[in-house]
Amino acid sequence: METFISSFGKAFLGGLLIGLSALLMLVFNGRILGVSGILGGVLNSNSRSELWRYFFFAGMLLGGVVLRFTLPNAFENTLERSDFSLVIAGVLVGWGTRLGSGCTSGHGICGVSRLSPRSLLATVTFMLFGFATVWFFRKWGLI
């Protein structure tokens, strides 16, 4: 029970930090903090001149390094997934988030907060498909 409460607390605290970083992005740069959108911008030859995107990712990697030293279990991964399923998942997430113009950050946090109808619908959709996928794969013992 104690670990249950602490994992709720950590999730909430992490959520507050995520919300704060997204809000600061708006205060400083007037942009939505959407990881898939920023990634698309970095990889699109038409928008490569906008250096702030590279700096955002540099900050994320720096954050990853800080986490490795301060919260060693932050990157714990006990899931067993074949290389093939990771490839498929990477392709689906890459294509899906660009096609749908957002992911968990841009739609799920920023868009939902702004009550954007597109983001609300996208968030409900990716959640439902996430639930269905886990159910399906567990039912057939595939993952």
Binding site: V35, I88, L92, V93, F126, F129
Partner: peptide
């Protein structure tokens, strides 16, 4: 797009 993302998320447990 959101549906494809949801499927990929459900397979690997990673979002971007």
């Amino acid at each position: 797009g959101a549906a494809l993302f949801g499927i990929g998320w459900g397979i690997a447990g990673f979002c971007p």
